[in-house]
Write a protein that binds this DNA or RNA. Sequence first.
DNA 1: CGCGTCGGGTTGATGTGTCAACCCGGCGCG
DNA 2: CGCGCCGGGTTGACACATCAACCCGACGCG
Lengths: 161, 161
Amino acid sequence: MSKGPWLDGDEQKVWRSYLLMRKTLETHLERHLQREFGLSKSDFEILVNLSESESGRMRAFELSRSTQWEKSRLSHHLTRMEKRGLIRKEACDARYPEIVITDEGLRAIRDSAPAQAARVREFFVDVFGPERFAVLGEAADEVVAAIEKHCDTDCSLVDRS
Amino acid sequence: MSKGPWLDGDEQKVWRSYLLMRKTLETHLERHLQREFGLSKSDFEILVNLSESESGRMRAFELSRSTQWEKSRLSHHLTRMEKRGLIRKEACDARYPEIVITDEGLRAIRDSAPAQAARVREFFVDVFGPERFAVLGEAADEVVAAIEKHCDTDCSLVDRS
DNA sequence: CGCGTCGGGTTGATGTGTCAACCCGGCGCG
DNA sequence: CGCGCCGGGTTGACACATCAACCCGACGCG
């Protein structure tokens, strides 16, 4: 029934292939991260950012900027991570706490990152191969630019630094 | 600190472009669906599947197959959708209920699908352009195949029909 | 001073996803 | 028959995301 006004033939097909890849890849990566290291994708993202900073410490809004998360999500997630000992909140300069990666957090990411990188390479980078991969990168940037341009003109919802 | 064993230079860059595209596109599409039509991406997915079936009615496990969702997630979501009047569960053949799209659900998807399709075209299909888009489709299929092949050999977690 | 408002951050309610346990009818098989 | 297992489905507890409301110090300004 309905056969609604939807994408046509090939568009449809590729779009669904993309969606399927997205989901398959994501669940695969996430599952392994979870099962082998007990980290969620979100945990991982935070730890990557912290461990890439010079000092292993950042202010919450910096994390918010680099992860593109909303502040409340970030706040909730950080309290959970603190409970699990992956990070600490240090109230140094009076009011705003700094987020510090703990030894445990550092260990977690150092253990998990190589495996994660290897999987990304195996199932994504290498399957695409150099040329298609490069093409994807360009196109991806253009898609992001298109959406942001669109949003600039009619909405103000994005946290543009 | 740490600069862990991670993807190198270009790999890294493209991978992050991809992740950013993924997130940007997804939140953009989802936000509009939510704000303009009060549907979540999950609602939409269910309604698409139901409305594409002949009779507008399916068994839960069929939906589970085509959406690739776990059964518990599906069950939870269907009860929520029923509460909102988008679908109905009809207990025809004794035990297993059939999921039926309601008039309201039908209206919802007929209203929202064209807008959604237009956005996908505007920000994804057209930005890629025909050749790159076709290339993406192929690569996506290969990625899925690679992951499934891998899983066939060492795990049994996927619901393969 | 009094007052608004703005940015960084937290909180609580609610919607959504995941995991493990369970229910129950059918089927194989002793 | 009795018993176990399997497949489709539900349930409950918990992790996670989103939204709106709030807190509070700083800053502008009458």
